[in-house]
């Protein structure tokens, strides 16, 4: 049993989380739903920090609270505000949901207690990651070691999921389906016009820091990609989508999406050519830890490229669909 301040904060945040979830269920307006959803996301982020999952918290903040919110805002429509979203759930839904919940509650009584270090989760696989990754891979952030090397293939899959989503949105909202309209951007707002150009370089600098500091602290390609994408999207919002197209054409955004996947995949091919298994970075350099460093650096760059360009591509596609503009 944890009796520290940590547990108290944890329980407090859980209460806040539950309240925001209930508010979300009862909420009637689409716009409020999205705002509450962001609040919910940030609360769960704080919980992740309390539970030592700093990398996860970072990702949830960037992806769950950031990108999701932007995407939701892109698809809501003023007409939706008239209807009532909340209806009391019907008997079937209630029974199904409650039965699932009760089944789970029944199962919790065999689950390990919060923080108990003597359970299989903490004594089997993970001991090698925690004890040997310092010598086998040689970077301090164990999450990065596991993510990029021990389970590097999952991360390739994850990048491909992002790429698949980008491709799918591209197909669904392709140029042929869209109504072409481009607004003036937010350039007409003088505060934004003055402040944002000064902030964007800092955002990009921060993205680079997160990208290359991921070996030592929380962060890495995913978070950096999202931040970089956000910076570029702000630039696009601020100026005008047409000027944005002058900086980088849609064709190249799409190519960038695929390019990151290729960088990642080809690192694996390189290690096969070097005589190792797929994604075995040890063979990429003279010493095995140097190889691991190099491999992780390269694949994180691949991740960053795909994520950043997918964010841009999503933004361009949803923006072109002109949901909020008309």
């Amino acid at each position: 049993m944890i009796t520290t301040i940590n547990a108290l904060v944890d329980m407090g945040l859980l209460v806040v989380l539950s309240v925001s979830a209930l508010m979300l269920v009862r909420c009637n307006s689409p716009l409020n739903t999205i705002i509450l959803n962001a609040l919910y996301s940030f609360t769960i982020c704080s919980l992740f920090v309390i539970m030592d999952a700093v990398d996860v918290a970072f990702t949830e903040a960037a992806v769950g609270a950031g990108i999701s919110t932007v995407l939701f805002l892109c698809v809501i429509h003023p007409d939706d505000e008239s209807g009532r979203l909340f209806v009391w759930p019907g008997p079937l839904a209630t029974v199904v949901a409650l039965a699932t919940g009760l089944l789970l509650v029944f199962g919790t009584f065999d689950m390990p207690l919060y923080g108990d270090p003597q359970v299989p989760v903490h004594t089997h696989l993970v001991t090698r990651f925690l004890e040997d990754s310092g010598t086998e891979i040689g970077i301090p952030n164990v999450v990065t070691s596991v993510l990029a090397s021990y389970r590097g293939y999952d991360t390739l899959g994850e990048v491909v999921v992002v790429f698949t989503a980008g491709t799918s949105v591209l197909i669904l909202l392709a140029a042929g389906h869209a109504r072409q309209d481009s607004g003036d951007g937010l350039i007409s707002n003088s505060i934004l016009r003055v402040v944002m150009p000064r902030i964007i370089p800092l955002v990009i600098l921060f993205a680079l820091y997160v990208q290359f500091h991921g070996d030592y602290g929380p962060g890495g390609g995913f978070q950096a990609g999202v931040i970089l994408g956000a910076g570029l999207i702000t630039l696009a919002l601020l100026t005008d989508s047409r000027i944005m197209q002058g900086v980088i054409s849609e064709r190249w955004i799409i190519r960038g999406m695929a390019g990151g996947v290729l960088v990642y995949g080809l690192v694996g091919v390189a290690s096969m050519l070097g005589g190792g298994k797929y994604l075995d970075y040890s063979v990429l350099a003279q010493s095995s830890t140097d190889g691991q460093h190099l491999g992780i650096l390269l694949i994180e760059i691949g991740v960053g490229i795909t994520v950043a360009f997918t964010m841009l591509s999503l933004f361009v596609s949803f923006n072109r669909s002109g949901q909020t503009g008309d």
Binding site: A53, D55, V56, T59, E60, V63, G64, I67, S68, L71, F72, C74, V75, V121, H122, L125, V126, F129, L130, V142, V143, S145, V146, L147, R151, D154, T155, G157, E158, V161, V162, T164, A165, S168, V169, L172, L173, F222, L314, S317, F318
Partner: peptide, 24 residues
């Protein structure tokens, strides 16, 4: 334990990818 963190990092990204396709 870093392993659940790695898995959930992946799952969060997968989740937002699903959301993006659904919203499209």
């Amino acid at each position: 334990n870093p392993l659940p963190h790695v898995l959930i990092l992946t799952a969060i990204v997968v989740g937002v990818a699903t959301t993006a396709v659904g919203l499209a």
